[in-house]
Design a protein around this nucleic acid. Sequence first.
DNA 1: GTCCCTATACTCGGATAGCAAGTGTCCGAGTATAGGCGG
DNA 2: CCGCCTATACTCGGACACTTGCTATCCGAGTATAGGGAC
Lengths: 162, 162
Amino acid sequence: MRLSEGVEWALHSCTTLALLPPDATLPAARLAEFHGVPPAYCAKHLQELRAAGIIESTAGRKGGYRLARLASEITFWDVVQAVESDTRAFRCTEIRQRGPTAIAKARYSPVCGIARVMYGAEQAWRRELEARTIQDAVDSIVRDADPQVAVKALRWFQEVLT
Amino acid sequence: MRLSEGVEWALHSCTTLALLPPDATLPAARLAEFHGVPPAYCAKHLQELRAAGIIESTAGRKGGYRLARLASEITFWDVVQAVESDTRAFRCTEIRQRGPTAIAKARYSPVCGIARVMYGAEQAWRRELEARTIQDAVDSIVRDADPQVAVKALRWFQEVLT
DNA sequence: GTCCCTATACTCGGATAGCAAGTGTCCGAGTATAGGCGG
DNA sequence: CCGCCTATACTCGGACACTTGCTATCCGAGTATAGGGAC
């Protein structure tokens, strides 16, 4: 089981955008540079975030990305769902309906008991992600980050935003 | 994000083995036949369950697999962990330590705030799976299954176990 | 009738191809900007 | 000096190769059984 690496990039990208002054935009290439990841591939994931309505894009010179709504209104779940094509990890193929014991499809309970447990576990996972927002990530970074990083980041932002 | 299809097979296989009379064994090929899945591939997952100490194998004629311990002592988590090579879905690559804001490694907090949230969510998922056992699956099947299936299963067991 | 031996058929187990999805990259279409020109 | 126009450079966005890991399969090694033979 593997979550796409893009989820990590997307979460960090949203958090970084949340740190910018209101209405400031940051191009995909700069965002990739800030995180030290391949620009083209990073851009791909930003497009997915845009398609999901989490971030907005501005074209042309001085263009770039910015959050589409408040960081406190964007949950981790929103981001994961945007990047990951299918967030349902366990997929029941109804093997209980195959083999020598198979009977008419209508006579089976609507959901397999094993699938029910797996779905329940994933729901617990989802609930945790829905309870956390990008603002929480911003807060934890502000709280935990070394002052030296804060200075470097601020300086880099000022240089890039001109 | 995708959980291996083998997880479903493994869970159903364990549940089926739990339905057998004590100390009875069932060959991999029969187990695959019962679930209508490719025998060779199914056998591969059974080997993983064996390596994890969840089921036991007996070689030679009249050999096969059986549970290594009580169904109530085997959690869903045990099975998932056995089949899935790596159960950690989110993998933090520490991109916060890359790019223009990078500083000495020792000055970073031990765990990234974003990763902490993701790990927490997975822990919630894991906890749910640890709370459910194969016995629970057996109970739900006994409760929900159509009598017709029960009859067919019993008949098939008797025929196969000779 | 009982015990032992041997051949057998069946089991598991690891090593080997095939395929799909995620990973990584590129170039083209579109647009806000900046400079130059005219009034 | 001010406003408009045009060329430009930069942005995003979708279409195209590559690699990793899951999917699927096979054949060989090992073993408990079943039958036959000897005592």
